[in-house]
Every structure is written in structure tokens, then in C-alpha cells.
């Protein structure tokens, strides 16, 4: 099972840097980098909600299921 987080694309579309997003959602840039590079094992609903709020998107815009 592989879930990808399309943070790169959303940041590009919003013309937002990782540092700026980090400041807005209150999550360290290193943790966002872990998310962005696909190293994260899990994501909290609160984190997902904060990302959706700041990126003005839905969870389905952020998460993509790639299968086995």
C-alpha cells in the first residue's frame, strides 16, 4: 500500500514555500519535509485539517493512493 502526499504540487499551485506553510500550520519545516518526501508513517487528522485549511483544498487533493 502506498499513499502519496501531493504537497509539492499544491505548494507550487499556491505559490507558497514550505517555510511559509510551516509557519501557517505550526508544524516544523523538517516534519513537513518528512511528509513531502513520503517518509511519514501516519498523519494526524489535525495536521491534515491544518494543511487543507492553509492550502484551501480537500484531503483528496493532498492524498493519492498508488496501490501495491
Amino acid at each position: 500500500m502506498r499513499i502519496e502526499i501531493r504537497l509539492d504540487q499544491l505548494l507550487l499551485d499556491r505559490r507558497m514555500s514550505l517555510t511559509e506553510l510551516s509557519d501557517r500550520v505550526g508544524i516544523s519545516a523538517s516534519n513537513l519535509l518528512i511528509l513531502k518526501t513520503g517518509q511519514a508513517r501516519a498523519i494526524r487528522f489535525s495536521t491534515l485539517a491544518a494543511l487543507c485549511r492553509e492550502l484551501d483544498c480537500q484531503p483528496e487533493d493532498l492524498l493519492v493512493y498508488r496501490g501495491e
Binding site: I27, N31, L32, I34, L35, A40, R41, A42, I43, T47
Partner: peptide
């Protein structure tokens, strides 16, 4: 612990 560290 490792999983908790990688839960964002």
C-alpha cells in the same frame, strides 16, 4: 517510538 516520530 519510531512510528510516533514519523507521525506528523
Amino acid at each position: 517510538r519510531r512510528e510516533a516520530e514519523l507521525t506528523i
